[in-house]
C-alpha cells in the first residue's frame, strides 16, 4: 500500500506521544529528587525509595493488593473464558441478550455505581467487608474484559481444526483441552494480565468494598495524595511503572517470538 506520512501526521504523532509520556517521565524523574518539595529539583537521591520500604503500612497494603489482584485475575480468567465460549460456541441459549448486556455494561459503567451496588449487596447478605469482598468485586469487573479479549480470538481462529478433532472421535472436553485451549492460550494470558492490572489499579470499587482489615495500595496512595504531593508516592509510582513496563515489554517480546516461530513453521 502506498501511504505517505505528511508533516502534519508526523507532528501530531510527536505531540500526541509527548503528551502521553512526558507526565509519566516527570513523575519518575522527581522520585529521585533530594528535596521534599515535589516540584523543585534539589539534586539526585534515592532516599524516598528507602523511606518507602520502611513504611510498613504501605508495604502491607501492597501485599494485600498483589494477593487480591492474583486471586481475582485467576477467577476472572476462568469465568471470562467460559463466558467467551458461551457467546461464541453455544450461540443460542435462553437469556442471551441479558447475558451480553451483563458482559458489556460493567466495562463502561461508572465505577461509583458498581462499587456502591456491590457493597450494598455484601451488606444485605451479611458478608464482612475486607479481602474477600474486594476480590469478588474485582473478579466481577475484570471477567468482562477477559471475555472480550478471549471472545475476539475465538471469533477469528480456524474452526476446522476443532471439527477435524471431533470427526476423528475426540470427545468435546478432550477437543477443548488439546485443540481449542492451546490456540486461544495467548488471549487467555493477555486477559489474565489485563485483569491483574485493572485490579491493582482500582481505587473506587476497592474503596467501597474495603474493610478495616484490608486496605489496598491505591486507597493508601489516594489518601496520601489528598494530603498533598509526597515524594514517597512518586517512588511507589515509579516502582509500579517499572514493573508494568517490564511486564508489557517481555509479554510483547514473547508473543512476537511465538508469532515469528508459528510463521516460520507455516512456511
Amino acid at each position: 500500500m502506498n501511504r505517505r506520512l505528511s508533516a502534519f501526521n508526523v507532528t501530531s504523532l510527536v505531540i500526541g506521544f509527548a503528551f502521553l509520556y512526558l507526565p509519566i517521565l516527570l513523575l519518575v524523574l522527581y522520585s529521585f529528587n533530594a528535596s521534599r518539595l515535589v516540584t523543585v529539583w534539589g539534586g539526585f537521591s534515592t532516599q524516598w525509595y528507602g523511606a518507602l520500604f520502611r513504611n510498613e503500612a504501605l508495604m502491607e497494603a501492597a501485599w494485600v493488593t498483589l494477593r487480591v489482584a492474583f486471586l481475582s485475575a485467576t477467577l476472572a480468567t476462568v469465568l471470562g473464558t467460559l463466558a467467551a465460549l458461551a457467546l461464541t460456541r453455544y450461540g443460542r441459549f435462553p437469556g442471551r441478550t441479558l447475558f451480553t448486556g451483563m458482559v458489556y455494561a460493567p466495562m463502561v459503567m461508572p465505577e461509583v455505581i458498581t462499587g456502591l451496588s456491590l457493597l450494598l449487596f455484601f451488606v444485605a447478605v451479611d458478608f464482612d467487608r475486607g479481602f474477600w469482598t474486594i476480590t469478588l468485586a474485582h473478579t466481577t469487573l475484570t471477567m468482562c474484559f477477559v471475555t472480550v479479549v478471549v471472545q475476539s480470538r475465538l471469533m477469528t481462529f480456524d474452526r476446522s481444526l476443532e471439527e477435524a478433532a471431533m470427526d476423528l472421535g475426540a470427545p468435546p472436553l478432550r477437543t477443548f483441552f488439546s485443540v481449542t485451549l492451546p490456540l486461544i492460550a495467548p488471549s487467555i494470558v493477555a486477559g489474565f494480565l489485563l485483569a491483574f492490572t485493572l485490579s491493582m489499579d482500582d481505587l473506587v470499587i476497592a474503596s467501597f468494598n474495603a474493610g478495616p482489615g484490608a486496605t489496598t495500595l491505591p486507597i493508601k496512595i489516594y489518601s496520601a495524595v489528598r494530603l498533598g504531593l509526597s515524594p514517597e508516592v512518586n517512588a511507589a509510582s515509579a516502582i509500579l511503572i517499572g514493573i508494568v513496563t517490564l511486564g508489557v515489554i517481555s509479554a510483547t517480546l514473547l508473543s512476537k517470538r511465538s508469532i515469528l516461530s508459528s510463521r516460520r513453521n507455516a512456511h
Binding site: 522527581y30 481505587l203 496512595i221 495524595v225 504531593l229 509510582s237 509500579l240 513496563t245
Partner: peptide, 13 residues
C-alpha cells in the same frame, strides 16, 4: 497499563 490514579497524580505536580 500504568495506574490511572498515578497518571492523574502526575498532573497535580
Amino acid at each position: 497499563w500504568t495506574s490511572f490514579l498515578i497518571r492523574i497524580y502526575a498532573w497535580v505536580a
